[in-house]
């Protein structure tokens, strides 16, 4: 994969995420973690090779088919990507609204999810009034609200305190137990080791085979 006419940023990636699996992705800054995630959540496309998402050949998909695939993927962006003109509630409900789902069918779920991430009182607040940690929780809630089959998170616990980090990890584990495939890019090696989940390591755009760390109590 490359950006525009630049050099390849990912080389010979061979990755298969089994349905229902839970993986961490680690590597130094600039190694290609975010690029690999972008490829998976269809923000970029590969310059060559094959990519299948939920069994479908992405290259052969029409634009609308790709949109339908994206609806099955929840993404927690490193920079949150919340829309400042929408309230917390509307930001979280955005994937549902963009999919054409009627508000009365999701309103209760969104309110419940907001309580779960500890933002029950901020339902009508706007992102610019929230702290970094609160924004991150909103971003996570938005990623999971549609109960995605694949959840991708780029440094999801980077801006929250350790207690909230554990709470959010529990949410990811719970989603994984319910059947979602989870891939989390993180620098937090303590968190990675504590989870005991297989770890993919990327270095200079090259992905190594998954390793399962020995689980340590955190």
């Amino acid at each position: 994969m490359r950006y525009a006419h630049g050099p390849d940023v990912l080389h010979n990636i061979n990755l298969n995420l089994a349905p229902g699996s839970f993986h961490f992705l680690t590597g130094p800054s600039g190694a290609g973690k975010s690029s690999l995630l972008k490829l998976i959540y269809l923000a970029q496309h590969s310059s060559r090779g094959e990519m299948r998402l939920f069994g479908q050949d992405v290259r052969a998909c029409s634009r609308n088919q790709k949109s339908l695939l994206r609806r099955r993927v929840g993404v927690v962006f490193q920079e949150f990507r919340l829309l400042d003109h929408l309230s917390v509630f509307e930001n979280i409900a955005l994937p549902l609204r963009a999919s054409g789902i009627k508000r009365d069918t999701y309103e209760e779920d969104v309110v419940e999810l907001l309580s779960w991430v500890g933002l029950g009182d901020a339902i009508n607040a706007y992102p610019r009034t929230l702290s970094g940690g609160e924004k991150q929780r909103v971003a996570i809630a938005r990623a999971v609200v549609a109960k995605p089959e694949l959840l991708i998170a780029d440094e999801p616990t980077g801006n929250v305190d350790p207690d909230m980090a554990i709470r959010l990890m529990r949410l990811f584990v719970e989603l994984n137990r319910l059947g979602s495939t989870v891939l989390i890019a993180s620098h937090d090696l303590q968190l990675v080791r504590a989870s005991g989940a297989p770890v993919l390591t990327i270095n200079d755009g090259r992905l190594s085979a998954p390793k399962t760390p020995r689980k340590r109590a955190r």
Binding site: Y41, L42, A43, R63, N64, S67, L68, L69, R70, R71, R72, V73, V75, R81, L83, L94, P95, A98, S99, G100
Partner: peptide, 16 residues
Amino acid sequence: RDVVNTLHLAGAFDSY
């Protein structure tokens, strides 16, 4: 652009 990107990645159709 941020709105368009967010909607696009959330799975909104181009027509939406």
